[in-house]
Design a protein around this nucleic acid. Structure first.
Lengths: 217, 217
DNA sequence: GTCTATAAACTGATAGAC
DNA sequence: GTCTATCAGTTTATAGAC
């Protein structure tokens, strides 16, 4: 009694498990999410899960690696033929920010795994994701310097600066409750940075208009 | 047999529990750290822990709130009579960065609680910490603009920019393995930002020297 | 205050039928 | 492939002696 319907679709139990487990993991974390909760949410029984994934750890790794590969691929496939480095950088940041919004649960878990207690979840390698993003930013910055669009300077440090504000925006976006920085907010902040990074003479076509002409102190 | 010595000091079992639990929580997270592990590490038995803290959640909250109050107080007590806004901002960031280094375990847990899965650990309110830091940065930026040391602009956005890079530096510092941004690195990046934020004529006394005189494109 | 001993519930996981 | 039934180990927590 109680359990009235069991799963007999026969085709995509696997998907159901993956789809049901992600939001649970994202809300309670790996350790606090029990196998039974996943089973109930997916509407299947234990042996099915163990048949497909071996154990809880296997499920988690499979889940995270799949999403990680998706992001990885989206970033690799991303090309942009915008004219200026400024615009290309803005487009890239917007792209990754949208990926985050579309896959919040995964990114919350990824950041938790990456920056949180190391032994709270099975080890999963997210380095390729991070490196790809970091390198893409840096590449555009260097191109912009070479072309004279940006002031020359330490591209490595500038990359960390950009990544810092983007990371903070992503983390604030990922939180359930209030959202402190939305897409528009990040764009504004990025405009501010790029405005200060650009050579005055090449003030780009966008409308940020806040730059005051330099006047002696 | 096996357990040869039990605790009979009679005075500071409480401290032992707190001191033993923090690194465990920081390494394995709240959910994956069992009460028994804490007991073994502290060299005491279960009833002692429950006597002082009621339950596991009570221990965690007590631990985190104590450290949170420490940071809170350190930030409130912090004053700086440096002359320029640039220097005051650098000092403030350096101060908080040192607090992080000195209490890595707490900050790793705080960030995990704040940005990670919401139900993976008992709820603890860290907002005062965040707000204090955010407001302190903003205050200095506004003072710098008023005095003409910084270019005028959106102080709110600039605050997020600064906080972004500082947050990223803290998170990278907190990770166990490789450290990507150390104290010197953060200082360099901050110099870069402040250099671009300052009015050209007031180029400050530090040695960053990377600014090129503005030349037409 | 701190211990010994133990309980009740839950955990991840498996054997074996169909 | 998916189920029923069940296990052995671990978990948080407490009763009661000293």
């Amino acid at each position: 009694m109680g359990k009235s319907m069991m799963n007999h679709t026969g085709t995509d139990c696997r998907r159901q498990i993956l789809d049901a487990s992600l939001p649970l993991f994202a809300r309670k974390g790996y350790a606090a999410t029990s196998v039974r909760e996943i089973l109930d949410a997916a509407g299947i029984t234990a042996p099915t899960l163990y048949y497909y994934f071996g154990n809880k750890e296997g499920l988690y790794l499979n889940l995270m690696q799949t999403h990680c590969a998706m992001i990885d691929e989206a970033l690799s496939a991303y090309t942009d033929d915008a004219v200026g480095a400024t615009q290309r950088l803005k487009n890239l940041v917007d792209k990754i920010f949208q990926l985050v919004i579309e896959d919040k649960d995964f990114f919350r878990l990824m950041f938790a795994d990456y920056y949180g207690p190391s032994e709270s979840a099975p080890y999963c390698d997210y380095i390729s994701c991070h490196v790809k993003f970091h390198a893409a930013i840096r590449k555009i910055l260097e191109e912009g310097m070479r072309s004279g669009e940006f002031q020359p300077g330490n591209a490595g440090h500038m990359t960390w600066m950009i990544r810092g504000v983007v990371q903070l925006a992503m983390e604030e976006q990922i939180k359930e409750d209030r959202e402190k920085i939305d897409r528009k907010g990040l764009q504004s902040i990025l405009d501010l940075i790029l405005d200060r990074l650009s050579r005055p003479s090449k003030a780009d076509a966008t409308v940020h208009s806040e730059r005051k002409s330099f006047q002696g102190g």
